[in-house]
Amino acid sequence: MHRDHHSHSHGALHSHSGGHDHLNERRTFFAMLLIGGFMLIEVAGGILSGSLALLADAGHMLTDAAALALAFSAFRISRRPHDRGKSFGYYRFEVIAAFINGLALLVLTIWIVIEALKRIASPPEVMAGPMLAVAIVGLLVNLVAFRLIHGADRNNLNIRAALWHVIGDILGSIAAIIAAIVILYTGWTPIDPLLSLLVAGLLIRAGWSITRRTLHILMEGAPDHIDPETLARELSNEIVQICDVHHLHVWLLTAERPLLTMHITIRPEDRADDVLLRVKDFLAKRYGITHSTIQIESDAAPIIRQDDSTGIYLRSQSI
C-alpha cells in the first residue's frame, strides 16, 4: 500500500529578493542614462579624431546602453506576478536578458578584432589631442556607471552581465587614453588598434562565461554547488526515517532561485508530516533550497527501484 503526500512551497519563490530587485532596477536605469548620453559624445570624438579605440569604445557603450535597457526591462518584467500562463512568474526573463547581453558582448568583441586587424594593415591618421580628452571624460563616466552597478546585487546574472559591459567600457577608455598619449608623443598610430585587440581579448572571456552560464540555466541545469546524488545520499543519512530517494530533480529558475522535486519513501510507522518538515529544513539550511515539491510514499516492503532516464535513486535497506 502507498500513501502519497505532496508538498509544495511557493511563497519563498515569489517574495525572494524583492528589495534587491528594486535596487538593481534603479541603479541599472541611472547607469543606462549615463552611458547612453556619453556614447553620443564619444561617437563624435571618435569620428573627429579618427581613433578606432574611441569608436570601438563608443560601439561598446552603445551595446552597453542597450544591454542596460534590456536589464532594466528584465527587472521590471520579472516583478510581474505569476498567472495562469506563467505559473513560475516572469523571473526567467532576467536570464534571457543576460544571455542576450552575453551574446552581444561576444559579437562586439568580434567586430573590434576585425576593425583592429584592418587598421593594423592600413593605419589611419589619428588626432591624439581630441582622442585623449574624450577618453578621459569617458573613463570618468564609466567609473560612475561602474560604481552604480557595483552597488547592486552582483549574484544576479543580469547585473553581472551589465557589470562586465561597463568593465569593458572602462578598459576601452583606458586603452584609448594610453593610445592617445603614445601617439601624442611618438606618432606611432598602430598602438590604437593593438590596444583594442588587448581589450577584445579580455572581453571575450567575460562574454563567453556569461553566455555559458545563462545557457546552463535555460537548459534546466543544476546549481554548481549541488550534486543531486550527493544531496540524496546526505538526505538519507541525515533523516533515518527515509528508506528511498528517487525521481530527484534540481534546477535553476534564476541564478538565485534553485528549485527541487523528488519522491521519498518512508517506513509505514513514521509520520509523513514530521519527515516532510525535517526534509524542508534540511534543504533550506544545507543547500539554500526554499522552493520544493516533495512526494512522500509509504510502503511496508523494502523498495528496489530500477534506474531510468529520470533516475537518481537510493536502494532502501531492509526494514
Rank of each mutant, 00 (worst) to 15 (best):
V126Q: 10
R315Q: 14
S122H: 14
Y91K: 11
G221E: 01
P228Q: 01
H5E: 11
V245A: 13
V134A: 13
T230R: 14
I266R: 00
I264K: 11
Y90F: 14
V137R: 05
R212S: 14
D169F: 01
P193W: 02
I239S: 08
H247L: 11
L13F: 06
I96L: 15
Q317P: 09
T211N: 03
N155D: 11
S173F: 02
P190K: 01
I136T: 09
Y91F: 12
A175C: 08
L148T: 00
P268H: 03
I167P: 00
L253Y: 08
R278V: 13
H291G: 10
R154Y: 00
I226G: 06
F93P: 07
F282K: 02
H10K: 09
A121D: 11
Q295V: 15
I303W: 09
I114K: 11
T63M: 11
H225T: 01
D281S: 15
I304G: 09
W208F: 13
A175L: 03
Q241A: 15
E229F: 07
E125I: 05
G85P: 00
H8I: 14
A66W: 07
M262E: 03
H246I: 01
I167F: 08
I112S: 01
V95R: 05
M61F: 07
I149N: 01
P123L: 00
R119M: 04
L277T: 14
A222G: 00
S236C: 10
I77H: 05
R286S: 12
S9T: 14
V137D: 01
L259V: 05
D224V: 10
L68P: 08
V144C: 07
